[in-house]
Design a protein around this nucleic acid. Structure first.
Lengths: 148, 148
DNA sequence: CATTAAAAGGACAATGTCATCCTAAAAAAA
DNA sequence: TTTTTTTAGGATGACATTGTCCTTTTAATG
């Protein structure tokens, strides 16, 4: 919808690592199992993330991957960019009209522009640290609710 | 992004017909040329729209397609639905977390929910009549601006 | 009735995304 | 040094979307 399945897997994997919050490497197979992502496929995605300096990889026994920088400094749009590539700069009109712009907008233009900026804002403003914290909070709430 | 390329072509074609606002059939090849859509491909899409009772087709010489009902009664979501199929009812979480719901949301959940509803609202509220009118207005403004 | 011009529809080709398989390289442990 | 365990990376397969080709059906016109 907003990004490919591959980018979704990448975000999941990175949140997993941010949650663990350790300096030790984590095996790709562990992450794959946790999120039920095909192992080999996630390995490819991890390779790409390493190339884009979002992950560091340690090869060999006891190896694995870890965040290449603090979770606070990794934003979702960076992950999406790394996997799906740069967003189109001549922002694509929703109904594909060539001359669509603010001056000569397509009939959807203004509504769509607002939505697009909301999405952009969402991807640009959220970092892994915040997301991981929220996931952990939710887990705790869940287990509390279960206990009752 | 919101829908497939095929659905985009379908919307363009239907707006073209709404703009013409005639009861005479329009050849698919004419529409394809106007929007630079592969002719045969648009023909397939038109077939689907006919099956979904959004277009009527007239075969043979002087044939073509036309809107199956007044432009005011055709909403964008109907076109998208016809081409791309029904939207997933168990609305998919943006980061693919299985247990994501209002009660146990994923870390994006609330922001994404709002955006998703804006999109839905946009597709549900806009009909071809309004869109075509806006396109025509824009064209007029454009040609006025050119004249200066 | 034959010709022409349109949509209908089946088959298939091209492309992109998602996924798997297998071998190589690297590093720790036996 | 050999074995084991991990990521790296090339090749290939499965599948969906996009696009093309060709034949059939339908209907107007010569």
């Amino acid at each position: 919808m907003l990004y490919t399945k591959s980018a979704e897997y990448a975000i999941q994997a990175m949140i997993y690592l941010a949650e663990k919050n350790t300096d030790d490497p984590t095996m790709v197979s562990e992450i794959a199992e946790a999120y039920e992502i095909p192992r080999q496929f996630l390995a490819k995605i991890a390779q790409t993330l390493v190339k884009h300096h979002l992950l560091n990889a340690i090869r060999g026994r006891n190896g694995g991957v870890k965040l290449a920088k603090p979770a606070k400094e990794i934003y979702i749009h960076q992950i999406v960019y790394a996997i799906d590539g740069a967003p189109l700069e001549h922002e694509q009109c929703v109904i594909g009209i060539n001359e669509c712009s603010d001056v000569a907008p397509c009939p959807f233009h203004h509504k769509w522009k607002v939505i697009r900026e909301d999405i952009r804002e969402m991807l640009m403003s959220e970092n892994l640290h915040v997301l991981a914290k929220r996931v952990i909070e939710k887990r705790n709430e869940m287990s509390k609710a279960m206990a009752n």
